[in-house]
């Protein structure tokens, strides 16, 4: 039912990748995305693909889960590919029909751009598939801690993220309930033009807003009652601690980025 909706798309499994410190995974994903822009020839893509393939194998996540992330962006993918294909000028003209000119350089750029985008998406999917939303919030809180110095409320932002994760499914279910209750009073959410439909949503939005406000004030009281007073002096039940595999993972990432940069500089194709 609706309560089963999870944010992100965690794939539960016991693997080396799953057990890594979430901070490692966030940093690694970031490094991987940067690495994709460090080369511009075929060999770079092969290295990036091989490296990614190894990670997927290690994570024990079925490949079809990884590629699922591409579906929502397929339109964007086609659009950018087409743009690259049509707008790249070059010397080797393949087809020229009216104002449409397709060059060899254009085809090359299209393929590379599409590959880059796909790698980018499936790379970050691998992170969300192997990290629970809670671990992710912890990692973000820990990694962005230095921002505290410039008065960014890192702890509060992380706390807000984790509370949102808990309450989104509840509010989704509540929306469904209110919608049904108004339908029982004869409300119609399916017919009419756009303006009419937006207007028809008022009987859903107001009760939902009232309920969200009530929940927020209840929760604030409950947090007060449990001695919550910000991040100061707070201990952690599940503190993030680097272990040996995490160090190795950082070294692997470092090795990978060195190889990619070298390849980008020295390999001809």
């Amino acid at each position: 039912m609706l309560r089963d909706i999870t944010i992100g798309q965690y794939y539960a499994s016991e693997s080396v990748i799953h057990r890594l410190d979430p901070r490692v995974k966030v940093v690694a994903t970031f490094v991987y995305i940067i690495s994709l822009f460090c080369f511009d020839q075929l060999s770079g893509y092969i290295i990036a693909a091989l490296f990614f393939g190894c990670m997927v194998k290690l994570s024990k996540v079925p490949f079809k889960f990884i590629t699922r992330g591409i579906k929502p962006i397929i339109f964007m993918l086609i659009f950018t590919a087409a743009l690259n294909l049509l707008w790249t000028s070059g010397e080797h003209i393949l087809i020229k029909a009216g104002f449409i000119t397709i060059t060899v350089e254009g085809v090359k750029k299209m393929v590379f751009m599409a590959l880059r985008l796909i790698f980018l998406i499936i790379g970050s999917s691998l992170m969300t598939l192997t990290t629970t939303p809670n671990q992710l919030t912890d990692a973000i809180e820990s990694l962005f801690k230095p921002l505290n110095k410039v008065k960014v409320p890192v702890h509060e932002i992380a706390m807000m993220m984790s509370i949102a994760l808990r309450f989104i499914p509840i509010l989704v279910e509540e929306t469904d309930k209110i919608m049904k209750a108004q339908m029982a009073r004869g409300a119609d959410f399916e017919s009419g033009n756009i303006i009419q439909r937006v207007k028809n949503m008022v009987p859903i939005f107001i009760p939902l807003f009232v309920s969200a406000a009530r929940r927020a004030s209840d929760l604030a009281l409950a947090m007060d009652a449990r001695c919550y007073h910000g991040g100061e002096g707070r201990t952690k039940m599940k503190p993030l601690k680097y272990k040996k595999p995490d160090i190795i993972a950082y070294l692997v990432m470092f090795g990978y980025i060195c190889i990619i940069i070298t390849a980008g500089k020295f390999l001809p194709i």
Binding site: A181, Q182, R185, G186, A187, D188, P203, P207, V210
Partner: peptide
């Protein structure tokens, strides 16, 4: 007519009478 659990959570209008009229209006 179906009255859901905690039906007061579906009230939304500015006045009591307007809220009660929501059903008849939809008819």
């Amino acid at each position: 007519g179906l009255v859901f659990q905690y039906p007061e959570h579906q009230l939304f209008e500015t006045t009591v009478i307007n809220d009660v009229q929501f059903g008849p209006k939809n008819l």
